[in-house]
Write a protein that binds this DNA or RNA. Structure first.
Length: 473
RNA sequence: CGGGGUAUAGCGCAGUCUGGUCAGCGCGCCUGCUUUGGGAGCAGGAGGUCCCCGGUUCGAAUCCGGGUACCCCGACCA
């Protein structure tokens, strides 16, 4: 794991998650990777709906003029736009941008849908692909085209919009990341320089990867009235006056797949969190002679049926390779539980269960298999979370001075998060970034300090902001 | 967009300096037999625009010129 970047690429390829595409910066998501994405979609979509939102779909193409209506927004996205100028062999009167995100086209439409305070709130979400022309890409972490969901809501008051923004971060994103992906996250507010182009305030959940770098795993933005003003989203309030609405937007993407890989993986390969694992239990049959194969096959079929009936995602591997090959192969793919059945097991009416995370092996009586498998999957889910949290704690430091901060960021082998006071000045933030490559990932809601103020890690002046500095993906 | 590097079989590479048995190796793939509780063995086999264009030469993967693509480092990254 010395070269984390190399390890990451190798795992993505060997675990059969993705393939390279003929188009620069784009990727082909293969079935095993896409199955993980589908599990992510299920978990996130369920929570989005439980919090009162509905799905809809907006077009891929956005008139260029729309993007230009919000000054900061266009400034933020202009460099990475893909633009269509020809359609049907003819030059377009107005070029169409391939959506980098849909605030503008949705804002344009919401202006028509919102007339009265009785129309509010509007709580919609879409699952879509977006395109951002990136200079440097990495599978799942940053690709020119990626899949995501983007929620876009409209509210009557600032308080309501703020509450929505935070609810998504807490009840949808962080809840999903921690309970399903077994990834502990730090929730917090983005600084002015790190916030979404056009937002009033941005919030994010940050996770620590296996190399100590931070990954923004989900963001939620209170857009204030910026887009409402740009697109004229107004409503007649109960008091008879016309007011600009308050909007929010929020998203998680296929980047979460990269997070799963980088948080849980080890020298052997992936470790899929059981709750989202495309395959939770893989059955490897073992036999020598033909009559053994027949007996083993009967046992495997019966076990497979039972596990499936219990709601588990199971696959039996009848490929011609040797058992040893299959063990390694499924460990590389991160399947949480392996179940072996051979002639000896058939005779004893048992099976062998092996955990991917600890490789602990146990013999389980045929009748106890389902309950034992379930229990082990729960244990693995918890163990992955615990290990990730322990790692993050071990790699989280505090710094009083810039020298301490810089030293931490220079220590590659022990890279991690550094917590420190910050005066709030963007200049200090920029200087730290220029000198150490570390950025303020967020101003965490939960502070690991009892003090309410201190001195800025860079300039030494009075500081009220407790910040998390880290190198980021 | 700056600095460096690479391009030869599906993947990873050798060969290039010094032009001529250099179209090669490992893995993978196909066929057969033997195997199978931690990455099997043997035998046979398929697979190439040596990135592209042009030049030098009797002869170019190899030398020269131009182009393209990709990788690494930096800058950028809502």
């Amino acid at each position: 794991m010395d070269d984390f970047a190399q390890w990451y690429h190798a795992v993505v390829r060997k675990a059969d998650m993705a393939d390279e595409s003929p188009v620069r910066g784009c990727m082909i998501i293969k079935p095993y990777g896409y199955a993980l994405w589908e599990a992510i979609q299920r978990g996130v979509d369920e929570r989005i709906k439980l919090t009162g939102h509905e799905n809809l779909y907006f077009p891929l193409f956005i008139p260029m003029s729309f993007l230009q209506k919000e000054a900061q927004h266009v400034e933020g996205f202009a460099p990475e736009l893909a633009v269509v100028t020809v359609g049907g062999g003819e030059e377009l009167v107005e070029p169409l941008a391939v959506r980098p995100t849909s605030e503008t086209i949705i804002g344009h439409t919401y202006a028509k849908w919102v007339q009265s305070y009785r129309d509010l709130p509007l709580l919609y979400n879409q699952w879509a692909n977006v395109v951002r022309w990136e200079k440097r890409t990495r599978p799942f972490l940053r690709t020119s085209e990626f899949l995501w969901q983007e929620g876009h809501t409209v509210h009557r008051t600032e308080e309501e919009a703020e509450a929505e923004t935070l609810k998504i971060l807490d009840d949808v994103y962080a809840d999903f990341a921690e309970k399903e992906l077994a990834i502990p996250v730090i929730k917090g507010r983005k600084t002015e320089s790190e916030k979404f182009a056009g937002a009033l305030r941005s919030y994010s959940m940050e996770a620590m990867m296996g190399d100590g770098k931070a990954l923004q795993a989900g963001t939620s933005h209170n857009l204030g009235q910026n887009f409402a003003r740009a697109f004229d989203i107004q409503f007649l309030d109960a008091d008879g006056t016309r007011k600009f609405a308050w909007t929010t937007s929020w998203g998680v993407s296929t980047r979460l797949i990269g997070a799963v890989i980088m948080v849980h993986g080890d020298e052997t390969g992936l470790k899929m969190p059981p709750r989202v694992a495309p395959i939770q239990v893989v059955i490897v049959p073992i036999w020598r002679k033909d009559e053994e194969r027949a007996q083993v096959a009967a046992a495997v079929d019966a076990v497979e049926r039972d596990l499936r009936a219990a709601g588990l995602r199971v696959r039996s591997d009848w490929r011609e390779q040797t058992p040893g090959y299959k063990f390694n192969d499924w460990e590389l793919r991160g399947v949480p539980l392996r179940l072996e059945i051979g002639p000896k097991d058939v005779q004893k009416d048992q099976a062998v269960l092996v955990r991917r995370d600890t490789r602990a092996k146990e013999f389980v009586a045929r009748g106890d298999l389902v309950s034992r498998a379930r229990a082990l999957l729960d244990e693995i889910q918890q163990a992955l979370y615990d290990a990730a949290l322990a790692f993050r704690k071990q790699r989280t430091y505090q710094a009083q001075t810039f020298d301490e901060l810089a030293a931490r960021m220079a220590d590659r082998a022990n890279l991690g998060f550094v917590e420190a006071w910050w005066c709030g000045d963007a200049q200090c933030e920029a200087e730290v970034k220029a000198k150490t490559q570390a950025t303020i990932r967020c101003l965490p809601f939960e502070r690991s300090t009892g003090e309410s103020s201190g001195t800025c890690v860079y300039c030494g002046k009075d500081a009220q902001e407790w910040a998390i500095f880290a190198k980021a993906y």
